[in-house]
Design a protein around this nucleic acid. Structure first.
Lengths: 217, 217
DNA sequence: GTCTATAGAACGATAGAC
DNA sequence: GTCTATCGTTCTATAGAC
């Protein structure tokens, strides 16, 4: 098995390009050329560009959702009322990590390396979250919402003073902070992934634990 | 002056469409049709699609950068060492507000209203921050960096225990949280702009004030 | 300054040979 | 399953009439 499946090579290339350039900014031709495949292969294997995006998205989101759910199970199994910091870590860590995968599905880098491995998938997650194209996130399913609802309930117990609406805002804030290394000044070092993750957990634990916002003054 | 300038109508339409669909997702045709202008007018008034984006971006960013600088001046003029919450508010409020404009430049909504007025410009800012297309943010200038550096220095004095790198991360976190209402579940109410702003300030003041992240354990 | 018309390239999708 | 070839559309940009 010196060479990967064409279908998998297309998925890998599309994952990288969609993350880097967004959905509208990536052409099917660019994907197939990066994958060393034929233009028509996307139509054959996936049907359309939007269907390719859905396949790419599901491949990266599903194990993360599962890891988030498992982490919450583990947490609630240990203590009935986990701390805010523990909840933040359980929810956010699978969004950053790469190695949480156990199956033999991925593991081949198409080209000569590129990204350090980490921050590759998290970049696609960010792209999915912020891309305005409907095709980029329209395929998301009920499993993701169910896990988010479970975390919302756990955060509600850990932060009883916060209104449900504000808590929804804060939970979205966790996802927004994931986008931090995509933002603004080009000044950032390219491979600060590990430090970024630890800084983000500090940042988010404090933010989630903030006292409730008072009523409009 | 019953009718606005063609050039201004194009800027208004482009501002809305770039914010909603991103740079690659917006065609020049869509802009001119929304503006009630001719396709060739973009070439005549701006030169190219990328130049149009730069004009749109500068029009929205410049008054915000000026307001951020003025707010910091006002703050430092009152007290030599402002609090973290004061700095967050001074930096973030111009990013949310619409009414900080004093000139008579804008003020005409092309269609029948649409957005409530607020959150219209902040949506473009978010789009500028997260869009992967180089044309969406490549035009940003030194004025924005200078203001960010001034805030970075002020935050450094207010938070002496944080390393400069972590502080840069947190400052980017402020911008990332701006993107919160673009994220994920469609569940959000459409015009929650005012509540979102207050929740964001609470969230960010707590996040910025977090104790330093320890060295890697 | 505004328009029509079009050049020239890139796009997504697919028919059909192998 | 992989390829070539191409259809029909849409794109940005611009020449040139008014």
């Amino acid at each position: 098995m010196a060479q990967t499946d064409t279908r998998t090579r297309i998925l890998d290339a599309a994952e990288r390009l969609f993350a880097e350039r967004g959905f509208s900014g990536t052409s099917v031709r660019a994907v197939t050329e990066a994958a060393g495949a034929n233009l028509a292969a996307v139509g054959y294997h996936f049907g359309s560009k939007a269907d390719l995006m859905a396949a790419v998205g599901r491949r990266v989101i599903e194990p993360i959702t599962a890891a988030q759910g498992a982490a919450l199970d583990r947490l609630l199994d240990g203590v009935p009322e986990p701390s805010v910091a523990e909840l933040v870590e359980a929810f956010a860590r699978p969004l950053f990590d790469d190695e949480s995968e156990s199956g033999g599905e991925s593991g081949s880098e198409s080209g000569s390396g590129g990204e350090a491995g980490s921050a590759r998938r998290s970049r696609l997650i960010v792209a999915i979250l912020v891309d305005p194209a409907e095709e980029m996130h329209g395929w998301m399913g009920a499993a993701e919402e169910a896990v988010q609802d479970r975390y919302l309930a756990a955060f509600t117990r850990a932060l009883p003073g916060i209104t449900p609406e504000e808590l929804v805002f804060r939970t979205r804030g966790i996802l927004a902070v994931m986008a931090v290394d995509r933002i603004g000044g080009r000044t950032q070092p390219p491979a600060a992934g590990e430090a970024n993750r630890r800084w983000a957990l500090t940042f988010l634990a404090a933010a989630m634990s903030a006292p409730p916002t008072g009523p409009a003054r």
